[in-house]
Nucleic acid binder design. Structure first.
Lengths: 233, 233
DNA sequence: ATTTAATGGTGTAAATCTCACACCTTATCT
DNA sequence: AGATAAGGTGTGAGATTTACACCATTAAAT
């Protein structure tokens, strides 16, 4: 038996749901905890916020310390504040989420001892997570599913240069439904914010596809008039 | 000079942005504070959460105590956690919002001494508010503006029986643009969730309009298949 | 009784968007 | 050369969106 853990009196923590896309699968970042409670469990990267940092800054710092990912473009998701969500007392957690390129990231090395490791795990077939982290994940997943329809978030998950097939399969994975190839391409290209490159895909054992880039400047120009693109929420 | 206020060490508060519609104007509920800091200022109804209540419960309690409104259907908006947003120390605030019927509410009497009074104020021409409450309001307003396009939130603001003109003018006020009368009516009626009553408007000095009701059961039946209607976020 | 003022209530046609649907092309591998 | 695997393309039907103007009804004023 271990000694009782200290009790918290009203603290806030951050938990991050970081999405990535790799090998045709949507994944999130998990850590393996190295601390009680829930020692050795898998969990979302999260920790307690300091007194003298904003929650946004804290979220970035915590994500960095637990996973080695610096300065990620995270956004606030939702705050979870049930009385008994944390066994050590009153811990209200502010959840953040981000969609990032897995490919561009070096290794995931926790800077602190609180996590043994950090790793990508497919969202299909997630293990049981510590605390109420499964609920937090589900909230985040619902959010990006909806948001996919009105914000260009897919491009954050893809490599800088991507094929239309990759883009389509990402949409299919997030929304869990098949899309029609011709209609999908027609629509995507009609927006006018995809830049066709002269390069082609490499290293595939079949006809190589054209590569495209997302042109954010054009996107902003096109959609600046449409009612309030939300950027921080 | 007054004595220094006590310093807070990591507490959470709730602030509520409660929208109403009256006399053709969109309004929110404000209180006049009766406590330092910002004594005598106008502010969103808000206070500090207790140790033993969830943030959702706390939000309902606080709204009740400050305005006399019981058991409102509030939803979480966003959490504001800049370090210096509260002069007394670290107070992270979780903002909630709701859209309600002004007409059905009795008087707004604060139960606690912390507010001198509570009252409706048009969102056009809001006064300077305490803390970062202006920012919180703006976030809430952006949220409902967007949401109006995909959720039936307008009916929460209207009386139970309303005319199509009232409904249209509410849309126009929230989105700050004129809509075409024929197209608006055609579309609203095409959804099939408005029930035409046999009653007519009363007490107007011109031709009385037909009254309608929002039929939530029908709405749910019609939209149950459409990807995840978000209810709690 | 008539007029005025104010809002209620209605339809159509053009343009755009959405959706369903199938085959040839290109590159690589054997 | 043939097999394999994905790349890439167009059309027509139906639904939705948009622009647009006039008569009807009621109460109040004269």
């Amino acid at each position: 038996m271990e000694t009782a853990l200290p009790k918290f009196d009203s603290v806030f923590s951050i938990d991050c749901v970081i999405f990535g896309f790799e090998a045709g699968e949507l994944k999130i970042l998990l850590i393996e905890r190295n601390e009680e409670p829930f020692k050795d469990w898998f969990a979302l990267p999260g920790y307690i916020v300091e007194q003298d940092e904003s929650i946004d800054d804290g979220a970035k710092r915590i994500l960095y310390e637990l996973t080695g990912l610096r300065n990620m473009p995270i956004k606030q998701l939702h705050t979870f504040g049930d009385v008994n969500r944390h066994p050590q007392g009153r811990v209200v957690t502010i959840a953040y989420f981000a969609l990032i390129r897995i490919s561009g990231q070096k290794d995931l090395t926790p800077i602190t001892q609180y996590a043994k490791k950090a790793f990508w795990h497919p969202v299909k077939d997630l293990p049981k997570l510590a605390f109420d982290h499964t609920t937090i994940f589900e909230t985040a997943f619902r959010r990006i599913r909806r948001r996919l329809n009105y914000q260009p978030i897919a491009f954050d998950l893809l490599p800088e240069k991507f094929t239309l097939t990759q883009l389509q399969s990402l949409y299919e994975v997030i929304q869990d439904k098949k899309l029609d190839k011709r209609n999908f391409r027609k629509k995507m290209l009609s927006y006018g914010f995809l830049k066709e490159l002269s390069e082609k895909q490499k290293g595939v054992s079949y006809r190589a596809a054209k590569l495209y880039k997302f042109d954010r400047r054009k996107y902003n120009k096109i959609f600046q008039n449409e009612l309030n693109i939300q950027t921080t929420e």
